[in-house]
C-alpha cells in the first residue's frame, strides 16, 4: 500500500485494542460485583478483534485469531456450560445445580462461585467465538474494501 491515509486510525487503534481486550476481561471477572458477565465480555472481546481486522485487514486478524480457533472456541464454550450441568448431575445434583459442583457443607458457597465462574467462561467463549465466526464469514466474502464503499 503506497499511501496510508488511515494512519491516525491505525495509531489510535493500536492504543485502544489492548484496553478493549483488558476491559473485556474486567467485565468478565467483575461480573459478580458490578454489571457485566460473559455475554458482554464476549462481545467486547470480539469487538476488539473485529476492530483489529477492520484496521489492519482480515488476513492479519486471521493470523492473530484463526477462524478455526474461533469456531472451536464457540462450540467449546457451549459445551463447557453444558458440562458444568452434567458434572452437577454426576455428583448427585440436578442439572446445573452448582451446589454439587464441589463437595461442601450445606452453607458453603464455593460451589456456586465456581459454577458461576465456569459457566460465565463458557458464555464468554461461546459468544466471542460465535461473533468472530460470523464476522469472518462476512469479511471473508469481501476481503478488500474499497474506500469508495464507505
Amino acid at each position: 500500500m503506497k499511501t496510508d491515509h488511515h494512519v491516525i486510525l491505525r495509531v489510535t487503534a493500536k492504543f485502544l485494542i489492548p484496553i478493549i481486550t483488558l476491559y473485556a476481561f474486567y467485565v468478565q471477572f467483575h461480573g459478580d460485583y458490578s454489571p457485566g458477565g460473559g455475554f458482554q465480555a464476549g462481545v467486547i472481546f470480539a469487538v476488539g478483534i473485529i476492530l483489529y481486522a477492520l484496521i489492519f485487514g482480515v488476513v492479519e486478524a486471521l493470523r492473530l485469531v484463526p477462524a478455526t480457533f474461533a469456531r472451536t472456541l464457540a462450540l467449546f464454550g457451549f459445551l463447557l456450560y453444558g458440562s458444568v450441568g452434567v458434572w452437577a448431575m454426576l455428583n448427585g445434583g440436578l442439572f446445573l445445580d452448582y451446589d454439587f459442583v464441589i463437595p461442601e457443607g450445606p452453607d458453603g458457597h464455593w460451589g456456586q462461585h465456581i459454577g458461576i465462574i465456569v459457566i460465565e467462561l463458557g458464555v464468554l467463549f461461546a459468544v466471542a467465538g460465535s461473533m468472530l465466526t460470523i464476522f469472518y464469514a462476512f469479511a471473508g466474502r469481501a476481503p478488500e474494501i474499497d474506500d469508495e464503499d464507505w
Binding site: 472451536t72 462450540l75 467449546f76 458440562s83 450441568g85 440436578l94 442439572f95
Partner: peptide, 21 residues
C-alpha cells in the same frame, strides 16, 4: 429416572456442538 425431564433435551443439545466439529 430422576433426570428424565432434562435428559430428553440434553442429549441433542450437547451433541450439537460436537457434531459441528
Amino acid at each position: 429416572v430422576r433426570h428424565l425431564p432434562v435428559l430428553v433435551v440434553l442429549g441433542p443439545m450437547l451433541l450439537s456442538p460436537i457434531c459441528a466439529a
